[in-house]
Design a protein around this nucleic acid. Structure first.
Lengths: 207, 207
DNA sequence: TTTGACTTTGACAAAATTGTTAAACAATAC
DNA sequence: GTATTGTTTAACAATTTTGTCAAAGTCAAA
């Protein structure tokens, strides 16, 4: 592309992502982004023409990355149990790095009445079917599979986006919070996956 | 207060809350707020002197309202089961009205390194103790009570703040979404409260 | 070293947002 | 009716944020 690539364009974009997705400052000014990247503000206009273009590029990449991730996790041809474990691991890792990325997309969504493309919905529908099958075969507690999905993502994402509150309320430092998020992966899995029969076993052994 | 109260001050504040907490537009301009309230923009300066003051007033009231609500729910002298039911009902009702209110406070929090007052923390600590007691007495599955709290609030709040995504992904209209949120209250309760022994009963009766 | 393309910068211009002021308006008391 | 006080408005000023442009800087090839 460029004859002489200084990496500045990429560096600006990554800095913007950090500010938007990690720090949650959706309305950072071009000056703030430039300062954080350690470059002259004019360079943002040079490489991206306008703030809107930078914003849109970052949003598009966020959409794609998230979409790719979910496709990979949801559409994998592996047993449901492993799939769930993998999803939790991958998604929570992402949440730790970019806790506000989904909120960013939600705002975009609200703003422009965006529509989820049909092929994405099909992936989700297939995943719902898979959940239903697990339920019918007694490996999951029966419920509306949409609730199951909401439960999954709620349990993973919410503590991350309210991280500062959690730390303050429970008197935690950063390290403690990270530990909690680490052990949380198992907890989420247990909540979601514990099947009727497993509950049976559990209660027997614990009595 | 005022000799002749036209209700405009209150109306502006309520409109601001709607825009901030219901629509999630944290960075609405004074013009947008004025337009939404159907008043001249100058009135915002007349009643609140500056945008910051309006913002701060709204934030303070949000903090107080939420704090009052949680105190009421957490510190109630009723059996844990009823307390949990009440919390879910009250909090989800609030989430439906003001889905973004907590996110608003989180941002405030991030911005000013705010600290939760000690007396609030004591209420939370007492609630944690109560949860631990329930666990020791076998009425709740054992886990770090902080996770229990996170689970509770995650399950309630997250689907609300990602409402537009949920509706789009699952092809739901507003009414369907509201139905889902209604039945969700029971689902959340079941996830959280189902105790080891109850699991035992459940699996026995369902076999 | 000179040319040429890309990169970076500072100064300036434009636009958006916020805040101020004086005057008009409305209701109540006198 | 007039005065007084609170309310609302339009016009203006200040500030913040964004975008433009010409010039300077940098590196590689000719």
């Amino acid at each position: 592309m460029a004859q002489r690539d200084t990496g500045t364009e990429h560096h600006i974009k990554e800095t913007a992502k950090r500010i938007f997705f990690s720090e949650g400052k959706l309305h950072a000014t071009t000056q703030e982004i430039a300062d954080a990247a350690g470059v002259n503000r004019t360079l943002l206009n040079y490489y991206f023409r306008s703030r809107d273009v930078l914003f849109e590029q970052v949003a598009t990449e966020a959409r794609q990355e998230l979409s790719r991730l979910l496709d990979l996790a949801m559409a994998a041809s592996i047993p449901f149990k492993e799939k769930l474990e993998r999803m939790i691991r991958v998604f929570m890792e992402q949440c730790l790095k970019y806790p506000y990325r989904e909120m960013f997309l939600v705002r975009e969504f609200n703003k422009f009445d965006k529509i989820i493309p049909e092929e994405k919905k099909e992936v989700v529908q297939a995943f719902l079917k898979e959940i239903e099958k697990e339920m019918e075969e007694g490996r999951l507690k029966k419920m509306d599979p949409r609730h199951f999905c909401m439960n999954l993502f709620s349990l993973m994402a919410y503590p991350m986006i309210t991280k500062c509150l959690q730390k303050s309320i429970f008197n935690m430092d950063e390290a403690t919070f990270l530990e909690l998020m680490e052990e949380r992966q198992q907890i989420i899995f247990d909540i979601l996956y514990t099947s009727p029969t497993e509950k049976y076993k559990l209660s027997i052994t614990s009595e």
